[in-house]
Design a protein around this nucleic acid. Structure first.
Lengths: 327, 327
DNA sequence: CTGTTAGCGCTTTCAA
DNA sequence: TTGAAAGCGCTAACAG
C-alpha cells in the first residue's frame, strides 16, 4: 500500500527501470507493447511517481516559493490566487512561507527554500530593498513585488503614482476645486507615492489641502472632524486608502454634508466594502500582480525571459456613487 | 555562487561529508575542532543545505499539502493563515494546490503531491466523501475539512447544527415568535444542516416559516419581497448566510420595516461586511479550523495522534445590532 | 528499442 | 571521533 517505487513496477512488468521511466514520461522510444505492460503494472500497483526523487534527479522542482510578510485579508488571497492561476497553468506548485518581522527568522525561512523550489516570489517585509536582497539565497531566481530591484532581479511595482494621477484627473473632470488629501502613515512608501502622484497631476488653479492620516478608518473620520473644526472649505476628499475614505464618509454623514453633491469622496485599493458603499476608488488588481509575478519568474526559470527589470502594474480608476451621482 | 554542496564544504574543511553532515545537524559525536572547521567552511561558501536531497534521504519533507477547491475570499485566507500559523510553528511548510471541479485534474493534482509533502489537508470539492477519498494517494496521511471521514482518516467538521441552534436560542430569548428561515441552495450540506439544527432547536410554540434562497444577496432580497407580497407576518429572519441577510436588510429598509424593532435579522458566517452592518451572525472561525487541521495532521505524522476521527468545530454566536438594540 | 549504470545531495550504518 | 560506502527514487547518458 505504501508507495510502490519505479523498481516495483519494473519488476512486475519485467522490464528495466529505465523503460518504466521512459514509458511513464511518454518518451517516444518505447515499444507499444512495453509501454502497455508498464502502464498495466503501474496501475496494478497504484504507482505514483515520487516527486522529490524526480526533482533531485532533474534539478528542478516545479515549485515556486512565495514569501509574504503577512497572510491577512483580501489583499493576500487575491495575490495568491493570481500566483496560483499562472503557476498551475504552467505546471508549477506554490510553496508558501510567511515571514514575520524578525530578520533571522526571515533569513532562515528563505534558506530552507533551497532545493524545494526553483525560484521565489517575494513581497518584502522591509523597507530597505538592499537588506532584503541580501537575505536571498544567491542561487534562486527571484521576483520582488513592490520593492525596487536593487538586487538585479525582476521587480513588480504597483504604480501608485499613476493611480493617484488618474484620481486627480477624475476629480478635476467633475469640477472639484478645493481638494483634501488624507495621507497614509509617514514613512510608508505607498502613501508617499500616492501623495506625490496626486499633487503632481493637479493643475495649478486647484487647491490641495493635505491632512495626515494613518490608513485606519478612525483616522479618516478624525481628518474630517478636524477640517470641520478648522472651518476649512473643500469639495472633495481623496483618502490615501479606502478605509480612511469609509471613515470620512461616516463623519460627513454625521456632519450632514451630502456626498457627492457637497463633497466628493474617494479612496484607494478597492476593498470589498468599497463596492458595497459605492465608493469611487483605485483598484489594485492583485490577482494580476500575482499572475504577472509568477509569469515573469517562470519565464526566467525557463530561460525565455524578456521584460525589463522593473515592471509597473497600473491600477484602475473605478468610478462609483461617491463622486458622481448614480443614474 | 550557485549552490555549494556538502561535498564542497567537506573539501574545504578537509573532513569527510559525513562529518559535515554531523556537524551541521548538531550531532554530539563531533570533535569541537572539526565542528568549528566545518562551520567556518560552510559560512565561507555560503552553504545552504539542499532540502530536496535531505527529504529524499530522510523520507520526510516537512511540508504539508493543502488542497482547496477554490482560492476565493476571506474564507480561504483565514483558513490558510491558521494552517500556516500552526505549520510554521512546528517546522512545516505549506504546499498549496487548488483543485477545480474537474475530477481528473483533481486526481492528478493529488498524485503529484507524493514525495513533496508528508501529509495532506483537503477541503473536498465534491459532495461525495467516498469518491474524494478514492482520489487520495493511499500512502499520504490526510485530514479532511468538512467532509465525513469515510476514508478512515481524521476529519474536521464545522458544526452548522450547533451554530443554528445557538441562533434559535438567541431569537427565542429575545422574544421572537414567528421566525423566517431563508435556506441555502438545495443539496448544499451546510445549508441543510443549518436548517435542521435551527428547526430542531425551536420550541413547539414558535412558528417557523421556511423560504428558499441560494446564498446570494439578491435571493435574500427576493425572499423578503415574497413575504411582503404574500402578506406573511413575521418578527425575525434567520438567513442561511450573511449575504442573504444583507439582501434581506436592504429589502426591509425599502419596505420601511424597523430592524431590530419590527424584525430581527441574522445570518451565518460573519463575513467582514457583517461587522460593518452590525449584523448578528454566527462566526465560523476558519483560522481555528486551519490551525486544528494542521495540528491534527502533524500529530499524526509524528505518531502522537490522539483525537477522534471526527472533530467538530463549534461556531460562535455574535450578537449585534440587527437583533438587539445597541446600547 | 532496451538494459546497465552513474549520479542528483544528503544521511546513516558500519568499520576503523 | 571519523571516513567509506550504501542507499533514498528517479533520470539520463551510454552501450548494446
Amino acid at each position: 500500500m505504501a508507495g510502490a517505487t519505479i523498481r516495483d513496477v519494473a519488476r512486475l512488468a519485467e522490464v528495466s527501470v529505465a523503460s518504466v521511466s521512459r514509458a511513464l514520461n511518454g518518451l517516444a522510444n518505447v515499444h507499444p507493447d512495453t509501454r502497455a505492460r508498464v502502464l498495466a503494472a503501474a496501475k496494478e500497483l497504484g504507482y505514483v511517481p515520487h516527486a522529490g526523487a524526480r526533482s533531485l534527479s532533474l534539478a528542478r522542482t516545479n515549485a515556486i516559493g512565495v514569501v509574504l510578510p503577512d497572510l491577512h485579508g483580501e489583499f493576500f488571497s487575491e495575490l495568491v490566487r493570481g500566483l496560483d492561476r499562472e503557476a498551475s497553468a504552467r505546471g508549477y506548485h506554490l510553496l508558501l512561507s510567511n515571514i514575520h518581522a524578525d530578520r533571522d527568522h526571515a533569513a532562515k525561512a528563505l534558506r530552507t527554500m533551497r532545493g524545494r523550489v526553483d525560484g521565489l516570489v517575494v513581497l518584502a517585509p522591509y523597507a530597505d530593498p538592499v537588506a532584503t536582497a541580501d537575505l536571498l539565497p544567491a542561487s534562486l531566481p527571484t521576483v520582488m513585488i513592490n520593492t525596487p530591484s536593487a538586487h538585479g532581479g525582476v521587480s513588480l511595482r504597483i504604480d501608485n503614482r499613476a493611480g493617484a494621477e488618474a484620481m486627480a484627473h477624475h476629480l478635476v473632470a467633475i469640477g472639484r476645486q478645493r481638494i483634501v488629501h488624507v495621507t497614509g502613515p509617514v514613512g510608508n512608501t505607498d502613501a508617499q507615492e500616492r501623495l506625490d502622484g496626486f499633487r503632481a497631476a493637479l493643475p495649478e488653479d486647484i487647491e490641495l489641502i493635505v491632512v495626515p492620516g494613518d490608513f485606519t478608518e478612525p483616522s479618516g473620520e478624525a481628518a474630517v472632524a478636524r477640517l470641520q473644526d478648522d472651518g476649512v472649505a473643500y469639495d472633495a476628499i481623496f483618502a490615501g486608502n479606502d478605509l480612511m475614505a469609509v471613515g470620512a464618509l461616516r463623519a460627513l454623514r454625521q456632519a450632514g454634508r451630502a456626498v457627492p453633491q457637497d463633497v466628493a469622496v474617494c479612496g484607494f485599493d478597492d476593498v470589498p466594502l468599497a463596492g458595497y458603499l459605492s465608493l469611487t476608488t483605485i483598484r489594485v488588481h492583485m490577482t494580476a500582480v500575482g499572475a504577472r509575478a509568477a509569469a515573469r519568474l517562470i519565464d526566467a526559470l525557463e530561460g525565455c525571459d524578456a521584460g525589463a527589470a522593473d515592471e509597473w502594474i497600473t491600477p484602475e480608476l473605478v468610478v462609483r456613487g461617491t463622486t458622481v451621482t448614480e443614474s
